[in-house]
Amino acid sequence: MKHFIFDCDDVLLDWVGGFRDFLVGIGHAPAEPRPRDWSMAEWIGIEDAATLRLIEVFNSSPAFGQLKPYDDALEMVRQLKDEGHTLTVLTSCSDDPNIVDLRVKNLRDCFGDVFPRVICLPLGQSKSQWLEVLRPGIWIEDNYKNALIGQAAGHKTFILRRPHNRKHEIGAHRAFVVNPHEIGDDMVTWIDTLAEVL
């Protein structure tokens, strides 16, 4: 049996979709359906500090606890659970107990009681220490930086292609073509759906 470690937002649950609905509701409708960069300031059209504040407000709201699961995540988690694998969630949404409760309930409502451990770190905090503790495993992320940290910690690492991380794959490919010794993420596997992990 193997240990699968999942990031949550935009891997298991559609955080961007929920946040976009929240933005529309307060009159900050983004021009595009999804951000094309990890920093969402340009997508929303406001400064970084104001963007971070909106993220904090959204993550504290009831809507954060009602995010929709990705269909491929539902299928994969069900299959892994049926096969007896260990499943862990490692997310940097917040360590505020109320927000943690929203996250855990949302996961349970969508996937059932399949994650014996849901680790919630402060918003934006590095996952490096926990990735060291949880190794070896299979790490699934959408954040390029966290994917590289997982790979460096010894995990088999997959990164889900999302509009906000596409530039990293393109940039990594260019660096590899020019000088393969300048890139350290050749063991990170880019995927379009979670089914590819199986």
Rank of each mutant, 00 (worst) to 15 (best):
S128I: 01
S128L: 12
Q129W: 00
Q129K: 15
W130P: 00
W130N: 05
L131N: 02
L131W: 08
L131I: 03
E132K: 15
E132R: 15
E132A: 13
E132G: 06
V133A: 14
V133W: 13
V133K: 15
V133G: 02
L134K: 08
R135H: 12
R135D: 03
R135V: 08
P136W: 15
P136F: 15
P136R: 15
P136T: 13
P136M: 14
P136N: 09
G137E: 07
G137V: 13
G137H: 11
G137P: 05
W139P: 00
W139C: 02
W139H: 09
W139I: 01
W139V: 02
I140F: 12
E141V: 03
E141Y: 06
E141K: 06
E141T: 02
E141P: 00
E141A: 05
E141S: 05
D142R: 05
D142C: 03
D142T: 03
N143E: 04
N143V: 02
Y144C: 02
Y144S: 03
Y144R: 05
Y144W: 15
Y144N: 04
Y144H: 12
K145P: 00
N146S: 09
N146F: 10
N146Y: 10
N146R: 12
N146M: 10
N146A: 08
N146V: 01
A147K: 10
A147L: 06
L148N: 07
L148I: 08
L148K: 09
I149Y: 09
G150M: 09
G150R: 07
Q151M: 12
Q151H: 11
Q151I: 01
Q151W: 11
A152H: 15
A153N: 11
A153K: 14
A153Q: 13
A153S: 14
A153D: 02
G154A: 10
G154V: 11
G154M: 12
G154Q: 14
H155Y: 10
H155R: 14
K156N: 08
K156C: 00
T157R: 10
T157M: 15
T157D: 11
T157Y: 14
F158T: 03
F158I: 05
F158L: 05
F158C: 05
I159M: 10
L160W: 01
L160A: 06
R161E: 14
R161C: 06
R162G: 01
R162V: 00
R162C: 07
P163V: 06
P163Q: 08
P163M: 06
P163F: 06
P163N: 03
H164S: 09
N165H: 05
N165W: 04
R166Q: 08
R166T: 02
R166V: 04
R166W: 02
K167E: 07
K167L: 03
K167Q: 09
H168Y: 11
H168A: 06
H168L: 03
E169Y: 06
E169H: 11
E169W: 04
E169V: 01
E169L: 10
I170R: 13
I170L: 15
I170G: 08
I170K: 15
I170P: 00
G171H: 07
G171Q: 09
G171F: 03
G171K: 09
G171W: 07
G171C: 07
A172R: 13
A172I: 00
H173Q: 09
H173C: 09
A175S: 10
A175W: 02
A175L: 12
F176A: 13
F176V: 06
F176N: 10
F176K: 14
V177I: 15
V178N: 14
V178T: 10
V178C: 04
V178D: 11
